[in-house]
Amino acid sequence: MEKFEAAFNAIIEQDLKVEPRDWMPEKYRKQLIRQVSQHAHSEIIGMQPEGNWLLRAPSLRAKQVLLAKIQDEAGHGLYLYSVAETLGITRAEMIEQLHKQEAKYSSIFNYPTLTWADMGAVGWLVDGAAIVNQVSLQRTSYGPYARSMVRICMEESFHQRQGYEIMVQMSFGTPEQKEMAQDALNRFWEPALMMFGPHDAESAHSSQSMEWKIKRESNDHLRQRFIDRTVPQAEYLGLTIPDTKIKLNKETGHYDHGEFNWDEFWNVINGNGPCNQERLDHHKKAHYDNEWVREAASAYAAKTESSVA
């Protein structure tokens, strides 16, 4: 046992990758399952707020781009469920945990999408924040997770551009469109920043995750990187960041910002956001309404396998 543990520690220390067949501490495995399944569920639940505008997308191009994007997210969910499966949990078990609210997903998807500009804001801010986090995770210590992040990041960067393109169209469009763009920024700015999680001092899983190199950079560090990158993009659009304290600090080279409404953050995480119930109900409905389809496929497989044998 000590020998195995030493080997594991050496992998972490030398910045090599832990692979599915390697020995790993039970807590490392559990922590990864928690994080990867949460990541997978986020991709899948994240299909819903965008799906809300799919049927109303205002041009053939916009519709195809949005559908392709949502489909990518389904694909990301699929990779990530597969990553988690290498750690010894099945997709069915993960879905059950989601339905029982034992597994979480990113709280950002509990906010409603109210106008077409939200398709821009989600791509620009939500995918933008996800990329900052995921680029960092390309260096995570678990091999399958790290490799999935490389591929996912390539697609996410398209998503972010898709979102920003909508923001450009709206911000430089009619006064009504610009108003929608500003409104979307107002509503999504703070929830997007809170995607990075609580401040480092209050983050329950952070320190162990950092030691095991599951997580490579702290919540606050990643959040600051996102703010620094995004504020100039908002300026280009002629939109106002809904934080009066946002200001470039010449000494640090970073943007200072105001404090966030953490009460809201915790309240939404704890199930009391605008759409928590709806998101879960939608997923459950699709899952259980279609149980007969999965049963038919299994019954068919059983019949045809036995006839072959």
């Binding site: 489909q71 389904a74 409905k285």
Partner: peptide, 27 residues
């Protein structure tokens, strides 16, 4: 496209989106 996020399982969701995309492109 109405079926997006409503498929019986993830692979099928992706398949239906693919067909939808083909048809939008064709149109």
């Amino acid at each position: 496209a109405e079926m997006c996020s409503k498929g019986p399982f993830l692979e099928e969701d992706i398949a239906l989106s693919n067909t939808s995309l083909d048809l939008f492109g064709r149109a």
